[in-house]
Design a protein around this nucleic acid. Structure first.
Lengths: 241, 241
DNA sequence: GTTGATGAAGTTGTCAGACAACTTCATAAG
DNA sequence: CTTATGAAGTTGTCTGACAACTTCATCAAC
């Protein structure tokens, strides 16, 4: 966690220091940061460096600056938040992210079942049909599949779910192409058809407003998908350490 | 989505512009950005502004700079990813985030039940006992509660869960103090005791390796907590749009 | 011809000073 | 007490300069 010497430029060092002060609670939300002049004096760096550091913090959403007034620690909820920086994108990392995605999507299905409007259910059903037509054309339907899951996330009425999925999807889904390549056309077709059958179960549950069943269907769907990656990873299963 | 005029400082405008160029694909990963001199000439701003914008992009993980060489578009997967930028922190936004947290924690409890080592179970149990002693001292045990949930996330063996919770927790949990203030001491005590009883159910399920029960217990625990906020929000329940 | 040293040009990192735009607050005028 | 006024303080921007480093072409030596 101590990454202070790793920076080769002063601005980043100052940025790390201030960031630590904020995240560590020494600078409470709403509190005012020392003035640029004070920081230059205290840290022995030029104003340019301090300003670049503050610019970085502002980009991170940790502080907001008001011209003529000062720089203030932002309300943490206001800024965009970042999670999970997979430095090396190993297969293990991907699996970890997929598990997180599973968690979110399972509950999204339940919320969708509870709260989706008829219009939103219709959107989900349309997305489902799009997968169908794509499969009949012999395509992989990767984009359609993503749209389907996205439609469910939208139907939760909670904007956090589609936002979350939007990111995860764009980085996890593309790897499906890897899987499809190693299968024979026959295996692939039966696989995709089973996927589609699982999808239909999810659609039915949401349409019926059955949250528990929606959860179950979605969990099975994603767990099965996860299982395929796990075997691909080399039998890394359960029971660690 | 087009927030270009909203910025009151030039550096942010430049930052938004460059950010759009990168995300839009006009600047491919690995490509070199125009030199600072070129940007000052093209955009009609000083080098100070350009440098602050680049500093912000570096903080975002979108670019890396090499002294004497230039600034380059970073590999997208390398950087941390960000989600969910609720501009206005309304109570509704908080509820949305809490629902996301519920989704993640429910599944974390299940994974913990399946995969926690004996040592990790011990850590969870210790955290649970810490809450107990804090309650007996008449304290709110906010920090202890967070440590408890964190211990469960750690026990999943998936680093994404504790990372995710670390952010959400630090920003959602503190709001508990709001709730505690409006209660009478008596209500508060019975409330905290019930919470602790819910915790014990979770601990037992994880200890037994019963994933389904762990899910159920955690969901009930968090759903109840969510419900209190919902009533506080003013009866905003289900069935939208 | 290949290799290695040399040096100039280009680029980012840092410093310093200046002024503009804005906020804040004390003070005086009404 | 309320309202202007103005000075001081703070961030935003511009300019110029130099240091540290990289890159690449040139040239000498083998």
């Amino acid at each position: 966690m101590t990454d202070k010497q790793s920076a080769n430029n002063l601005a980043e060092q100052v940025m790390v220091r201030l960031s630590a002060d904020i995240r560590g609670g020494r600078l409470a939300p709403g509190a005012r940061l020392p003035t640029e002049q004070a920081l230059t004096a205290e840290l022995g760096v030029s104003r340019t460096v301090v300003r670049e550091a503050v610019a970085a913090l502002r980009a991170d959403g940790l502080v907001v600056t008001r011209r003529g007034s000062g720089a203030f620690v932002a309300d943490p909820m206001a800024g965009p938040f970042r999670i999970a920086a997979p430095h090396a994108t190993t297969l293990s990392d991907i699996l970890d992210v997929m598990e997180l995605r599973l968690a979110v999507e399972v509950e999204a299905a339940a919320f969708a079942a509870e709260r989706a409007s008829r219009r939103q259910v219709a959107v989900i059903r349309t997305a489902w049909r799009s997968i169908d037509t794509a499969l009949k054309r012999g395509e992989g339907a990767v984009a359609e599949d993503f749209a389907f899951h996205r439609a469910i996330a939208e139907a939760t009425g909670n904007s956090q779910f589609p936002r979350f999925l939007a990111y995860l999807g764009s980085h996890v889904i593309p790897r499906q192409s890897v899987r499809l390549n190693v299968d024979t056309p026959d295996e692939r077709r039966t696989y995709l058809e089973r996927i589609q059958h699982e999808h239909s179960r999810i659609v039915a549950a949401i349409s019926d407003g059955d949250a528990a069943e929606a959860r179950r269907a979605m969990r099975e769907h994603l767990t099965r998908s996860l299982g395929r990656y796990r075997t691909l990873a080399g039998g890394k299963k359960n029971g660690r350490r």
